[in-house]
């Protein structure tokens, strides 16, 4: 009999109530964890305030934004991030798509090989940073040995040389995230129907012509998605830098000492956390980064739509 009374009781709960019961907790959580901090930090970005100081926020208008956008010190961080994103994402696209082209045709062991290539992506960035730090070590690291340097005194010091440090971070990022690009590219390549290549063979298209006119345009939407994801990630680059170089080494630029691998996120972290704890200024900087990322994403999405519609 209880099996009959059960649905009867449920009938008191209307669809609307049920929907609300599912949605309200999420909305509350979103407001507390996302919306409130977002709006509050926007407010703080217009104030002079330190989270570890009992003084309440003092309204300073656009001063923080002026400082972030005009001070060469901060421009340096943006320049590092931009250069890093450009080089790293380009290399990941080339390596990842190249690997996908090689693994496109199934062969014995290709499944295992694909899985093995995906391993770096599954590791924690903190772990990756820690062990690549050892790999780059000029006296016992295998990287320099692999490149053919046997004498630790003449071997390049990847993480300590201001000319090489950013490249070192790029190398690790490419190692870690090219598999992601490969995965997306493989999905795109395998979705191209065989009959298009059959038609192209009948139409007497050379291999290069087929690649340029069929393969590339057909995978382009997925390639653009890969570029979008990786660019956003590159702009947020924090963990690998902290694990490998901590932002250093420093280099004298004019009269100022700058940290050559200090990305915007690393700088933000330093500004926001004690001992500096410049909450107002760091909020302003975070908003500048947010606007840049939104702008870039929009450009990509526009490009993506263009590719899809022609």
């Amino acid at each position: 009999m209880s099996s009959y009374s059960q649905p009867a009781r449920r009938r008191h709960l209307g669809d609307k109530r049920l929907i609300q019961m599912f949605i309200i907790p999420t909305v509350v959580l979103l407001i507390l964890m996302n919306v409130f901090p977002l709006i509050y930090s926007l407010y703080l970005s217009f104030t002079e305030y330190s989270a570890i100081n009992p003084t309440p926020p003092q309204w300073v208008g656009l001063d923080n934004y002026k400082k972030v956008l005009s001070d060469n010190l901060y421009w340096h961080n943006f320049a590092v991030t931009g250069r890093y994103a450009l080089i790293s994402v380009s290399l990941q696209m080339i390596v990842g798509f190249g690997l996908a082209m090689l693994l496109k045709e199934k062969f014995k062991g290709s499944g295992l090989l694909t899985t093995l290539i995906l391993v770096p992506m599954m590791l924690s960035p903190a772990v990756v940073g820690a062990f690549w730090k050892n790999i780059f070590n000029p006296s016992f690291g295998i990287f320099d040995q692999f490149l053919g340097y046997s004498d630790p005194n003449t071997a390049p010091e990847w993480l300590g040389d201001p000319d090489l440090a950013l490249w070192a971070v790029v190398i690790v990022d490419v190692w870690m995230w090219s598999p992601f690009v490969m995965l997306l590219s493989l999905a795109g390549l395998s979705a191209i129907p065989d009959y298009l290549y059959e038609a192209a063979a009948i139409d007497r298209a050379s291999a290069w012509f087929q690649f340029r006119r069929i393969t590339l345009p057909q995978v382009m939407p997925l390639l653009l998605i890969a570029v979008l994801f990786r660019t956003i990630e590159a702009f947020k680059q924090f963990d690998l830098v902290m694990g490998l170089t901590g932002g250093g080494p420093s280099l004298l630029q004019g009269t100022q000492a700058v940290n050559v691998t200090e990305t915007v996120s690393v700088k933000l972290f330093r500004l926001a956390m004690p001992p500096q704890a410049q909450t107002g200024l760091s909020s302003a900087m975070a908003y500048v980064v947010l606007v840049i990322i939104i702008a870039i994403s929009n450009l990509y999405i526009r490009a993506l739509n263009k590719v899809r519609e022609g």
Partner: peptide, 18 residues
């Protein structure tokens, strides 16, 4: 087996362009 990312014109021109 038309090339879905090309217009009809581009599809027809393909064998000649190739």
């Amino acid at each position: 087996a038309l090339y879905s990312h090309m217009t009809a014109r581009e599809n027809i021109a393909f064998p000649l362009q190739a």
